[in-house]
């Protein structure tokens, strides 16, 4: 590939990232189509364009420049372009996405935070199996076994439902499955100390840090 081509590819990556940050679905799809038409590498466009854009969005969220509406629209722009690029990812890349079984514990129906973590993990190359809200502890375990997950992720915003998180770990231990899955926890009242106390593998305070935590605990995913 020529230098000129390299340069144009890099510019398209930058444009994709900007589209995501600007919540601009029309442009993100347009730029993704250009990537495909020019036969540039789809995986690189996801990684250096879309994921880069979502990372910037995550930072803006942490800095309280972006709020939930902005985050959701950015993720719409990201998903729309992802739909265009996905079929063009070279095969081997698409395969080994670590699976994460994710849900909000029983008794709790706050799901905005869970959904944001899911979006960021999705865009960072994990396959997230979303169990929704009000999920009984046993169901986390059953699903993780059924899909061959690498990780169980649990969210709650209520102090009154934190204990259900511990129960997931207890069930895993009882079934001799604890070593098979990483377990991570998060949400308002959760702390690193609580995560440690219940025997989880990790805690993260936000969606971007949740992805970093996944990256640390699981081998970095091969692709998006």
């Amino acid at each position: 590939m020529s230098n000129a081509n390299n340069n144009e590819e890099a510019q398209l990556h930058a444009a994709l990232a900007d589209d995501v940050v600007a919540m601009d679905e029309t442009n993100s799809v347009g730029h993704a189509n250009e990537i495909v038409a020019r036969q540039f590498d789809a995986y690189a466009a996801i990684d250096q364009g879309l994921v880069e854009g979502m990372n910037r969005v995550g930072k803006l969220f942490e800095q309280e420049e972006y709020f939930i509406p902005e985050l959701l629209l950015s993720s719409d722009a990201m998903y729309a372009a992802l739909d265009v690029l996905k079929p063009h990812i070279r095969r081997a890349d698409g395969d080994h996405k670590p699976k994460v079984v994710f849900g909000v514990v029983e008794g709790d129906t706050h799901d905005i935070g869970k959904n944001l973590v899911k979006i960021m993990a999705d865009s960072s190359g994990y396959e997230v199996i979303d169990l929704g809200r009000d999920v009984p502890p046993q169901k986390f375990v059953d699903e993780a076994v059924a899909v061959g997950a690498s990780c169980i992720a649990i969210s709650t915003l209520m102090t009154t439902t934190m204990d259900a998180m511990a129960e997931v770990v207890t069930i895993l231990q009882k079934l001799n499955l604890r070593e098979k899955f990483k377990v991570i926890v998060g949400g308002g009242p959760i702390s690193p100390a609580f995560a440690e106390k219940i025997g989880a593998d990790g805690y993260a305070p936000s969606a971007p840090t949740a992805v970093k935590l996944l990256n640390k605990l699981l081998a970095p995913p091969a692709s998006a």
């Binding site: 998903y79 905005i112 959904n115 929704g132």
Partner: peptide
């Protein structure tokens, strides 16, 4: 465009419930 966006990002949220 694209409304509603079901099955995306976080559809559980729209479909049923918010607490």
């Amino acid at each position: 465009k694209g409304w509603p966006r079901s099955g995306r990002g976080s559809s559980a949220f729209d479909a049923a419930a918010h607490e």
